[in-house]
């Protein structure tokens, strides 16, 4: 199984966690993910995910003037998004524990 496949589902939670830290725009988000070590997937992948999260009302976006010229879309978490992140953290802790248990018993 490739790591891209493993990432599905997990990356959503990580995106929520990064957005919770501060309001952020697409490129910044992609860069943060890369810094955290998620370098196996292409940056553009975040946009379909962001569109979906927006549809599910986990994140909202506002347009702000940027130094580079055109307006930039900044994302922030909704209350629903914050709840989802909490649930993700619980789920992840449990999953991580179980996997570690199996691998390093």
């Amino acid at each position: 199984m490739s790591s891209t496949q493993m990432l599905k589902g997990i990356i959503d939670g990580c995106i929520l966690a990064i957005i919770q830290e501060k309001e952020i725009y697409g490129y910044e988000l992609a860069e943060k993910l890369e810094q955290y070590g998620f370098d196996s997937f292409s940056e553009g992948t975040i946009y379909p995910l962001l569109i979906r999260m927006q549809k599910e009302e986990l994140v909202t976006s506002t347009l702000k003037k940027s130094t580079a010229g055109p307006k930039r879309k900044y994302y922030s978490l909704t209350q629903k998004g914050k709840n989802e992140l909490q649930q993700f953290m619980v789920r992840w802790d449990k999953l991580q524990n179980s996997v570690n248990h199996v691998l390093y018993k």
Partner: peptide, 14 residues
């Protein structure tokens, strides 16, 4: 328009 502009911005920076 929204997604094309967003990607344009991303591509420029990248």
């Amino acid at each position: 328009n929204a997604i094309v502009e967003e990607l344009e911005d991303h591509l420029m920076e990248a």
